[in-house]
Design a binder for these strands. Structure first.
Lengths: 194, 194
DNA sequence: CGATTTTTTGAATCATATCAACGTACGTGG
DNA sequence: CCACGTACGTTGATATGATTCAAAAAATCG
């Protein structure tokens, strides 16, 4: 089950077979069933997780009890509360599975050791973070400049797979739209396309 | 004028004097006067810039001609269109100076060489990006869960310096609020505090 | 100073949220 | 495999936070 991770890393950097093996040895497989948690608010985010199979989400709960989806992750993506992971602070986020999932997790101590043993991976994580940062910045630009309908259209274009796998109310939450509004938006799109 | 950059890097990683010198040699000082551009939409983002003095902003212009501030940068911060810089695509952003500024820029070829010559800097950029990524993710959470007034309050708390240096309409743009609305919000805060 | 930019204020409007009700789909245990 | 319960999606009526437009006041700049 390390195949996907190996391929994922080779997409960004070059590693020998033995380096790949040593890298993989730092990760632990973990099964997260639907509705089960990988992280709950108030805990410390012990792991960074690579999704081998399934779909997870990271979300916060505001004072009114409303959930807000910070991030989705499907196969070949990473998910974590990076802040809590790095600082050791309590997490304000929850991470749970939207589908039965299998992830590969690595804790902080292991990751630090791994980076010391295989310094080429510094480069890997740098490249990964560059992409992630660009992604979040585009999401910000999108919320600053586009209407709810336009944001939904962009979401469909950017994440066609997710749009089909994830419940509509979760997408609404991710986009910062009330689920009722997203329903109306979809109706409007369908009518317009007619 | 490389002092700030040297200290900035030493905050995250350890480097010898000679490594610091070689690092610095890859950067070029550049003066950007107020209202002058470091990058304009349609160009390729040639540089990553470290702000030594002054204040700059990165913004997009939407079809209606409205500006949306993606990022501010003051002393000890970095600013760039990372996407354009990394991919060589045309930029959709503009970067200009809100104050007379001095920055240290590095282009892609130089950065790549620098990272090969001083691999420890891989770690530096990884750490830098981790922080940046956390920052943008918090901004997203904020726009998903908080009202315009709450977002402004959080901005004041998070960036007290910026709040004083940057015109109000720029802060409004950064927060995704109309400048008139921010004016009313401020009035409301002042009234409430009375 | 005069000129331009920024901020404020008011009134009307709009996009989206909220509340409530109903329909539908799903999956879980009997 | 059906039936029931819970979660999800839709729809309508109403409410509201924030925008828009217009104009005046205040601040900043050359």
């Amino acid at each position: 089950m390390y195949e996907l991770l190996r391929a994922h890393i080779l997409k960004k950097i070059e590693l020998t077979e033995s380096e790949l093996d040593r890298m993989a040895s730092y990760f632990t497989p973990k099964r997260v069933l639907k509705k089960h948690f990988l992280l709950q608010e108030g805990e410390v985010g012990k792991y960074i997780a690579f999704v081998d199979r399934g779909c997870l989400r990271c979300y916060s709960v505001d004072p009114k009890g409303e959930e807000h989806v910070i991030q989705f992750a499907i196969e070949d993506w990473w998910i974590s509360d990076l802040q809590s992971f790095l600082t050791g602070e309590w997490s304000r986020y929850n991470i749970d599975a939207l589908e039965d999932s299998e992830v590969l997790v690595i804790d902080k101590i292991s990751r630090d050791s791994m980076l010391v043993e295989i310094p080429k991976l510094e480069r890997f994580f740098r490249l990964l973070l560059e992409r992630s940062y660009i992604g979040t910045q585009q999401r910000i630009e999108c919320t600053l400049s586009a209407s709810a309908e336009d944001r939904y259209q962009m979401f469909l274009k950017t994440f066609p797979t997710l749009a089909q796998r994830v419940p509509q109310n979760q997408i609404a939450s991710y986009l910062g739209i009330a689920p009722e509004s997203l329903s109306r938006i979809r109706k409007h799109i369908a009518d317009t396309a007619k």
